[in-house]
Amino acid sequence: MTNAISISSQASHKAAQWLSYSWSSSHNASPVLAHGALALAEICLALNSDSARLVETVISDILAEDQLNFAVADLVTALVSAAAVIKAGTSPTQSSLHIYLELLGEIIPLSTQDANGVIARMALEGVTLTEGDASAPLMEIDLSLLRSGRVEDTKRVLERVEVETRFGTRAVRVGAPLPELLEGAGIHALSTYDLPLGMRCLRACCYLDGESPLAIEADFLRLSQCNDGSFGDFEAAIRKMSRKYRQSEAELHIKLPVTFQSLWTLAELEDRSFRLFRYVFGTHGLSASR
């Protein structure tokens, strides 16, 4: 996906500019931030090849510092940052990455029944797309979970969708009104500014229903991009966090994951053939890329 005029492509170039500037302003950032920055760099490259110059500097700075620790990042961030490290070629980090990937299969059971297991399996074994047809498995979910008023119930439904569809790479058949209910849950989450939950709902909607326009939600995300290229309006949260961290570091802590997820979601909403994990892990997985 390198269409320079698409919305997610333009948004990612702006995000790359923010990353480049913010990273150069931060000093001795923690491994968690380093992984977040690498993951964001990787998705920026995926969405807009013109961002290469901006993000390659960030990647080489991080690798030169040799500050990575894959175990401290969340699984998605660790694995997407791993892809960035592998693409960058030789670095001192390669050996720790090698150990991490070897341990991954042992740490996380490669179960196909939980989301982390599915992600780990896709990272190690690669991703293939399964087109939908009448023989696709029928997914049945207790719809009352989406009106129980409990966020953990919504997350249970999301995990089922992510697992069953392998994050949108395997077609399933699903009956109405599950996609509509998930979309409603997503808008509810966005309206309370729970962006990670809202975006996760929207991606799940894409995995279930390739036709639904989700235009209101795409607009919401597009207009959540700040002038500097980062996503989300978190002035108060950053100010509060600045009591503990430096301002620049506080901003990275809050905005790196949200910006990463915003680009991921915008891209999957905009181009229904784009799947982040397929792009990042390829058809043979990260192990084969080393």
């Binding site: 129980s148 008023g149 919504t154 509509e180 409603g184 849950a185 808008i187 509810h188």
Partner: peptide, 12 residues
Amino acid sequence: AGLALSMCLSMQ
């Protein structure tokens, strides 16, 4: 109205 309905279901 349909989307608002599904949102209100989520809000109980």
